[in-house]
Design a protein around this nucleic acid. Structure first.
Lengths: 155, 155, 155, 155
DNA sequence: TTTT
DNA sequence: TTTT
């Protein structure tokens, strides 16, 4: 009924982008999320699989790279399926609805021409109007922007 | 760049529903969120203002009632504005994108005829296709449902 | 570097309580977390394994029961180990540092004599002074309670 | 009953560190949390006040600086008090129990001599044994580290 | 199977 | 009162 997870970690490898037979984009990557420092000195991490769909998948595949510090928001999904050997397999993965990278790119020019959201904030979000699952955290109004401090606000 | 808050508490009063001049629905209510037990024995709580917009506002106004145990997800917004006396006022409120109630209704019949989401799960969400800010946590596919365990999945 | 998950769901069975050879209590249970309503009408859920340690393990084992609506906070842990057949196994589980139940008990008397935290709030937390990993969300002062609205507060 | 907020933003100024009459350290700073990109192009942010106590206050004051990208976890607290003019004032602030900075320091030597948690991970946490409100996310065992993959584990 |  |  409520299932929300927030992670910050580094990509263990570049994302893999694929398409379903129906043409839907899916990207996957793994986040190494370091556990709090243990006195043992060893470097423990949880390696957590992330899945992103559609437009966000393509954007993630384009900008996220191995080693990048990245914040992910989503829900934890436990999938049970039968593999080709007929064995029951349990898979845990985070279905992300928001992905942002937190360190500056290596300035290799890849980001040139990007809008403000990358040049300045380096966040990727699924705020894409044509997407069915689009989430707009910002202003919830359809057309013209409305300042919710307006005197005509009902509260 | 990341701003997420999750609360569970009880409504201090019935929600207030209003409309902007443009006809957009807005609802407000306050959640009393008890702090962890303090040895003093006193019952301390944080009274946190919640705002919900559009379709979710109308649903919240219809089903949430004073005293209901409710879970809210959203972002914390700090608004600065000038009041009618010309004084600078700071307001903190949670703009919710998900609201669910956690206790069964008092069986007063209000919920009869409701779909599964209320009869069984009693969650309200903004999974509404026509909404511009719609967030669909569930299946991110547009048309027909696709089982992501399908063998034709690219991973 | 940041790993936080918040879940609300129902126990699929009573918790199992065990002890390590060193005498440390560990409890495990599974939470069925319903996914947002899908138009298909089917009742999909993620079955998420929860682990709790020490004092919280014993409290959880005592009060949580199959079917109870429960909120859990913790971190997602991915464990890799070799099972008795020498095969590599990956396990995903939530290590909870806070567990609260959200529905009233069935009044079977089990809770009688409980302090306010159960009788009133029905939350379990690891706010236990003698615990090494104790987390106190409430007042961060050691000895006597200090009202942080006190005039002598430095801010 | 549940109150958790996670933020990523930049300090608007260096933290202010003070002490209560009882000698308890308190630090305050403000986080500018940019809202998702609005097509208007304007740069909107929520300016959210953060409070940290005790040891974490001193560490935050030492390492956090104006402009630093920082992740904060805590609870939203609404405080009502009477100011010196006898007026009722409402204050919203996040009481943080975890603070980490996400960008590398400017290598001004301030961090030299730091242990791994700063040199490598640059996270600050309240994992301090002597603190009453200490939260240890890592291994919940007091003395020697126990590998929870050990064969003698009860599950 | 893994990141800094 | 504000950050990049």
């Amino acid at each position: 009924m409520l299932n929300r997870i927030i992670l910050i970690g580094r990509l263990t490898a570049d994302p893999e982008l694929r398409y379903t037979p129906q043409g839907t984009a899916v990207a996957r990557f793994t986040l190494a999320v370091n556990r709090p420092y243990t006195n043992q000195g060893e470097n423990e991490a949880d390696f957590i699989d992330i899945v992103v769909w559609q437009k966000l998948a393509e954007t993630a595949a384009q900008y996220l790279k191995k080693g990048r510090l990245t914040a992910v928001e989503g829900r934890l999904q436990i999938r049970n399926y039968e593999n080709r050997e007929g064995k029951r397999v349990r898979v845990a993965e985070v279905v992300a609805d928001s992905v942002r990278f937190l360190d500056r790119g290596e300035s290799n020019g890849t980001n040139s021409g990007q809008g403000r959201s990358f040049a300045d904030d380096r966040h990727i979000d699924i705020n894409d109007d044509e997407l069915p699952y689009s989430r707009r955290n910002n202003d919830p109004f359809e057309g013209g922007h409305i300042d919710i401090n307006d005197d005509d606000l009902p509260f």
